[in-house]
Design a protein around this nucleic acid. Structure first.
Length: 439
RNA sequence: GACCCCAUCAUCUAGAGGCCUAGGAUACCAGGUUUUCAUCCUGGACACACGGGUUCGAAUCCCGUUGGGGUCGCCA
């Protein structure tokens, strides 16, 4: 029997990180087993289930690389099947009609629990059981004639031939109901794997208040899907050895449900950041450049004279300083605009200091005389000048860096000067002199 | 409250009775490399919630306590 798993989100306009992790685990499991991974949109809540909300789910899946093997099933289209199942249960005497005083006018259809103790083996939590007296009959069709989640869910899982249900452990208590429904409908029961929640520092379910909580936010903040994927895979699961940095393929090869932890885990955004840097550094040049360009476009820092070649040189110079695509705008905007911001502390320390203006003027003259203006020649000129003045190179290096980039951090100064080019460098030094060095 | 689940460094985790004076990673601290920053390298501090058992031997098994979480809808 080939394994089939599914991700069954209800489209609410955003995809929670905990949900996408469930999808990641389902996908990983299906791929590892050579099975299928399916998508079912639980869009029965017509208020919230707008086409845009559905689009958000699809986008998140695509961005994360969670490919599914069949066309998505839209639960709203399946209402007749759900109702038919209820009729069948009614006919078999496994359900009954009753007015439980609900919202609707008439009677609801209530499913009769078997009245026996129940047990099942959860792939991550182990053996779980529940006593008959702790389980009550429950409504499967509302008095207004619409099917309830439990019914729809089970009927659709049967229809889709789902063999393994991988979902959040807030569903464990529902499992007994679902199991009973599978049996009542004469279908083979699937296996279940309940994943622990992702929690915040307070032990509560991780939410928007705790930082980025939705897939789209991570994307917008510049995280790489492969980094988030890698991170999420390791949040609650481990390969059993010391590997941490893993590609999608390695994860597929290593993933098994029995290595999923059953205790909840907390997001560590710092670790995600680190992992993002790791994946960033492993990216092919063209991908890196394309990602940076997209950010620049979004921040209105693109296009720029020199175009793609220029961008390539900036990216090359920034090197492993880019932990996020957004860093190209957050930490290297001075390559793309004259409107770069001056860091106040850096200005005070390096430009408003006694002697800084004098040093800058002297250096500016030397730089102006350079014919090939590149990393080598600028470095030579600077060092020669420093020696003549009987000072360390730092006395010159720091002020220029701040004058030219506004910041005291950044790539190798001389490569930066080369990329910026003589004209811009001289103009920036002059402007900085005017602006800050009122010596 | 009832029922269920969970419990190793700050965080993610390895650990399925002796290999554990508990390993790795992030974060943190200290040094080195880089006259900056980042990367990288080296070192450091940091944990088996508690109490009882079982056993020659327990982070690992059992019971209890404590702490946390989930579920108790004609929501999904």
């Amino acid at each position: 029997m080939t394994i089939r798993t599914r991700f069954a989100p209800s489209p609410t306009g955003h995809v929670h990180i905990g949900n996408i992790r469930a999808a990641v685990y389902g996908w990983l499991f299906a791929r590892h087993e050579g099975g299928q991974f399916l998508l079912r949109i639980e869009d029965t809540d017509r208020e919230r289930s707008t086409p845009e909300a559905v689009r958000t789910v699809l986008d998140a899946m695509e961005w994360m690389g969670l490919t599914f093997d069949e066309e998505p099933l839209y639960q709203s289209m399946r209402m007749p099947a759900h109702l038919a199942a209820a009729e069948q249960l009614l006919a078999k005497g496994l359900a009954y009609r009753e007015d439980k005083g609900g919202t609707g006018k008439g009677e609801a259809v209530v499913f009769r629990m078997p009245g026996t103790d129940m047990a099942f083996h959860d792939e991550v939590k182990g053996d779980l059981r529940k006593k008959a007296e702790d389980m009550k009959d429950f409504v499967i069709v509302r008095s207004n004639g619409t099917p309830v989640f439990h019914l729809a869910n089970v009927v659709d899982d049967i229809h889709m031939g789902i063999t393994h249900i991988i979902r959040g452990d807030d569903h464990v208590e529902n499992t007994y109901r679902h199991l009973a429904l599978f049996c009542a409908l004469g279908a083979p029961v699937p296996k279940y794997a309940h994943l622990p929640m992702i929690i915040n520092a307070q032990g509560k379910p991780y939410s928007k208040r705790d930082g980025a909580a939705y897939v789209g936010e991570f994307r917008d903040k510049g995280y790489l899907p492969e980094a988030l994927f890698n991170y999420l895979a390791l949040l609650g699961w481990s390969p059993g050895d010391d590997r941490e940095i893993m590609s999608r393929e390695e994860l597929v090869r290593a993933f098994t449900l029995d290595r999923v932890r059953s205790a909840p885990s907390q997001m560590d955004l710092k670790k995600l950041d680190w992992l993002n840097g790791v994946h960033m550094r492993a990216l092919p040049r063209e991908t890196l450049e394309a990602g940076c360009r997209a950010v620049l476009e979004r921040r209105a820092l693109w296009p720029v004279p020199g175009g793609l070649d220029y961008l390539a040189r900036v990216v090359e110079t920034m090197g492993e300083r880019l932990h996020f695509f957004t860093d190209i705008a957050d930490h290297a905007s001075y390559f793309f605009t004259e409107e770069y911001v001056f860091d106040e502390k850096a200005v005070n320390k390096r430009l408003k200091k006694a002697g800084a203006a004098d040093a800058l003027r002297a250096l500016s003259d030397r730089l102006a005389a350079l014919d090939p203006f590149n990393a080598q020649t600028t470095e030579q000129a600077l060092r020669a000048l420093a020696e003549e003045r009987g000072e360390g190179a730092g006395v010159l290096v720091h002020p220029v860096r701040v004058a030219v980039s506004g910041s005291s951090e950044g790539p190798s100064l001389f490569h930066m000067l080369e990329v910026l080019g003589k004209d811009r460098v001289l103009a920036r030094i002059a402007r900085a002199l005017e602006k800050f060095a009122a010596e």
